[in-house]
Amino acid sequence: LRLEVKLGQGCFGEVWMGTWNGTTRVAIKTLKPGTMSPEAFLQEAQVMKKLRHEKLVQLYAVVSEEPIYIVTEYMSKGSLLDFLKGETGKYLRLPQLVDMAAQIASGMAYVERMNYVHRDLRAANILVGENLVCKVADFGLARLIEDNEYTARQGAKFPIKWTAPEAALYGRFTIKSDVWSFGILLTELTTKGRVPYPGMVNREVLDQVERGYRMPCPPECPESLHDLMCQCWRKEPEERPTFEYLQAFL
């Protein structure tokens, strides 16, 4: 395994491009020591290896001592969030954005069929390849993070704006909380990567959403798509659509 080009840095580690087995181009995620327990990670990795779908980033291998390494397929255009905010983002029109959403829903419909939960679905965790191919990455890892700023769910590192209220408040993460996050991801797509709930801080978002506030229809977004977002944001988790439905609708 060779680490060649550093692609990015996040709160919990770095991402590199490299070569595996001398020939395969891969992405390598390294986790800061202390982010998660190697034992817990190894268990999760076994499950992650079983998830194989064309719209999920394929896991190739893991190094399960500290520092933990995760070796996955390489996606040339990086994260969907950076892609939307970058040069190419300007030229993306609604049909392409909807197609990308459908690809993500397709990957998540598979996660749904496998009775698995992602827990951290957002544009930053979707990767883009050639020809606007989108794949879901980092599934299941969020559960293992041991950082206090994260586990408190009120901490600075927790993605509260993407998280369903029952998950943020009571830790009830299910495929239905993933559906909520998918609704937020749809706003990221239609606004080219704007942060959700602009002008609001995490605490406010939690309070307002509890009181029934939902983001309005983004500019140039059809009402039918906003309606779909609002279905994803129904207060009762069981009233939210399935990913199978979302995939078919898109």
Rank of each mutant, 00 (worst) to 15 (best):
R122I: 00
V98N: 12
L51V: 05
F173S: 07
T30C: 05
P165M: 14
S76C: 12
L250P: 05
L51H: 00
K157S: 04
S37K: 04
K29E: 00
A109K: 13
P95Q: 07
E65T: 11
V136P: 02
R234S: 13
M108F: 03
K192R: 07
K77T: 11
D82P: 04
R25P: 12
G10T: 00
E244D: 11
E65I: 13
T174N: 13
L189V: 08
S64G: 03
L225R: 00
G8P: 00
Y213Q: 05
K77C: 10
A124P: 04
V128N: 03
R2G: 09
A61E: 02
L42E: 04
R240T: 01
T19A: 12
Y150T: 03
P33A: 11
E87P: 13
R93E: 05
L141S: 03
L80P: 03
M17T: 07
P216L: 08
L94V: 07
M229E: 12
R240V: 01
E244V: 13
Y197L: 01
M215A: 06
G140M: 00
M108T: 13
T88A: 13
C232G: 07
L186Y: 06
R203G: 10
K157W: 09
V195T: 14
R52P: 07
T30A: 05
P67K: 05
G18K: 01
S79L: 01
E87W: 15
F243T: 14
A109N: 14
Y110D: 07
E112Y: 15
T24Y: 11
P237F: 14
V5I: 12
K157A: 07
Y170P: 03
P38L: 07
E204T: 14
W162D: 01
G171P: 00
P95H: 06
S64K: 04
D120N: 02
R122K: 04
Y116A: 13
L250S: 06
S106H: 14
Q231S: 10
F139G: 00
C134S: 08
S76P: 12
I68S: 10
K55A: 13
S79C: 09
D82A: 08
E44K: 01
W16S: 15
L59Y: 02
E236Y: 13
G78P: 02
T24I: 13
F12Q: 02
M200C: 08
K161A: 05
E188V: 00
K6A: 15
Q46H: 10
G10H: 03
R211G: 08
I68V: 07
W16N: 15
Q247T: 11
G171H: 10
K29V: 01
A164R: 02
N148I: 04
Q43L: 07
Y213T: 04
T30W: 09
K176R: 12
S177P: 01
A109T: 15
V111T: 06
Y213P: 02
C230Y: 15
V133L: 11
L84I: 10
Q96M: 15
V57H: 08
R113S: 12
Q103M: 08
P196Q: 01
R211L: 11
E14K: 15
P198L: 08
